[in-house]
Design a protein around this nucleic acid. Structure first.
Lengths: 125, 125
DNA sequence: AATATTGTACTATTTAATTAGTACAATAGA
DNA sequence: TCTATTGTACTAATTAAATAGTACAATATT
């Protein structure tokens, strides 16, 4: 389980910091498919924020099919592969790659430089 | 020169739409190094927004060394290669790649899928 | 030097995002 | 079935972002 932490001075909204930490946790393999996350109340108490702030983070990740929630039971890392149609997945990857490359290009980076850096920087997947 | 257009219904702030169109223009090669952009006033009139909205977009791109401005003269596409030290450039590329891959990973995409998509989606650079 | 053109600075206003307070609804388990 | 635990819904309050109004400063041009 992730050791959640909030930085009030970062300028990044609390709910977004929570989202990022879950995202990174999945990226690093610290969060496994099916694993239960802290309840909205327990994480809210731990982080000293309102439970709706945690709920907002969970909901946003649920919309993206990264989390699944069941009222009365809890919130879990979803089994992404089963949920989303292949075509939709590729469209998503296309759009985020397009967005990303246009940013990288505007800095003057080439496709080759980008790919090389992704190979170096990329996590363990 | 780009044919700037704003979509008030998109939900994307005006100044950000301007930034994106310049970014994409550079990515597609429509904007060349050294080329002058419209003056803040002329673009503001054309897009029917306040000149500060255009100025905000230009300034943000100037901070990123994508544009250069000279008061009394105008705003230009900067010659990126000359301006930024190689080390700083690589750090920038590292950070945006890291940010991007963590997002892509959290959707369940692999490094290979990402690279393959960038090769397909990527512009002409 | 005078004037027009360029970007800048500062303030105010409006709009949207963020967080919190509180009550409600669904599920699990005793 | 009753109670505790879970997430949800709705509202209010706060904070931040976005846009605009207006005056200023630097440069170019005549």
């Amino acid at each position: 389980m992730i050791d959640f932490k909030l930085d009030p001075k970062s300028g990044v909204p609390f709910y977004r910091q929570i989202i990022d930490q879950i995202r990174y946790g999945i990226a690093r393999g610290e969060l496994q498919t099916g694993e239960q996350l802290p309840t909205v109340r327990s994480l809210a108490v731990q982080l000293k924020v309102n439970l709706n702030t945690v709920s907002k983070a969970y909901k946003e990740l649920e919309i993206q099919n990264i989390l699944e929630t069941q009222q009365g039971t809890g919130t879990f890392i979803s089994d992404i592969d089963i949920k989303i149609p292949e075509k939709e997945l590729q469209n998503k990857l296309d759009s985020i790659c397009k967005e990303f490359t246009s940013i990288a290009f505007s800095y003057g980076f080439s496709t080759d430089e980008i790919i090389q850096t992704i190979k170096n920087v990329g996590g363990e997947k």
